[in-house]
């Protein structure tokens, strides 16, 4: 049984000019211990699809799906109270902006202990011990002192480590990382990716890596879903995707990588759709097997 199974997910927002479809009939599944990368540019609906799973979208969003199962449990009609028990415990998420996703008014120690108190009901002493253990696990130096730090006293990379520590505090079965390294320097990015991958390998949790960076996909994923304008263009295992991409859009993305440049100009997406910047849905969807 798949850990997370989504079939025909559609998310719409009401705008001044009618309903806007941000995610259009997307299906995907993640197995236990698997790393799935969702790649696409801004506006491709990659984050919105996962926020819909987490129930983090505003109530104005219209979410429909044929199926949305987490460990066989239907997530569609779930009550807010049940959802709160699940989110943060069984499914956890890491966001792009580490400094913005921590509360500036509380110490990081308070924020990690809050999770342990609500989901695991640990007492004060046990919470502190576990928080120190978690900080050590994510490679924060001097965890005892770090607990009393406020987010603004730490660097972006350290804040992201705190976020990861909070996310893995309850040993989640599924971790969703939404552009976890986009705001970080390339040397720090490497450390954070190594940390996430090491934790994933150790705990065997499912991991969904949302990114726009083909390099990050190449370094982390087992399987890849390529999204464009809310639609799934292609799904393949990572090697097949890079070696033998099926959809025109994936081919265009790979050709636009500066390291794949041939000659003195880069190939752009429009070169692949001669004059028609929007790929026909069949170009990508017809060939996914």
């Amino acid at each position: 049984m798949a850990l997370l199974q989504i079939e025909n997910l559609t998310v719409e927002f009401e705008t001044a000019s009618g309903w806007f479809r941000a995610v259009d009939g997307v299906s995907m599944s993640v197995e236990k211990g698997e790393v799935l990368a969702i790649v696409g540019e801004s506006g491709s609906g990659k984050s919105v699809a996962m926020l819909a799973v987490m129930g983090l979208l505003p109530w104005t969003a219209k979410i429909t799906a044929d199926r949305m199962l987490f460990e066989g449990r239907d997530m569609r009609g779930i009550s807010p109270a049940d959802r709160r028990k699940m989110i943060g415990k069984d499914i956890a998420m890491i966001f792009q902006e580490p400094i913005a996703s921590l509360n500036p008014c509380f110490t990081v120690g308070f924020q990690i202990e809050e999770v342990l108190r609500i989901h695991l009901g640990l007492d004060k002493k046990a919470r502190r011990a576990r928080a120190i253990e978690l900080f050590r696990q994510v490679g924060l130096p001097n965890p005892e002192e770090r607990l009393n730090s406020f987010p603004h006293q730490m660097s972006g990379g350290q804040c992201q480590r705190v976020m990861i520590a909070i996310a893995i505090a309850c040993n989640p079965k599924l971790l969703i990382a939404d552009e976890p390294t986009t705001a970080l320097d390339v040397t720090i990015q490497k450390q954070i990716l190594d940390l996430i991958m090491a934790l994933q390998a150790k705990t065997g949790m499912g991991l969904i890596m949302i990114t726009h960076d083909m390099g990050v996909v190449a370094e982390t994923a087992d399987r890849v879903v390529v999204q464009y304008k809310g639609r799934k263009m292609e799904e393949a295992d990572v090697l097949t995707l890079f070696e033998n991409p099926k959809s025109n859009y994936t081919k265009a993305l790979l050709a636009a990588l500066p390291e794949n440049a041939t000659g003195d100009r880069l190939t752009t997406v429009s070169d692949f759709f001669d004059g028609n910047p929007e790929p026909a849905p069949s170009a990508g969807l017809g060939v996914t097997a």
Partner: peptide, 17 residues
């Protein structure tokens, strides 16, 4: 810096797998 830059070529993916 070079070592930290993600590689997107097929050989490095194969090596990682």
């Amino acid at each position: 810096l070079f070592a930290a830059t993600p590689r997107a070529d097929v050989e490095s993916i194969r090596a990682r797998i």
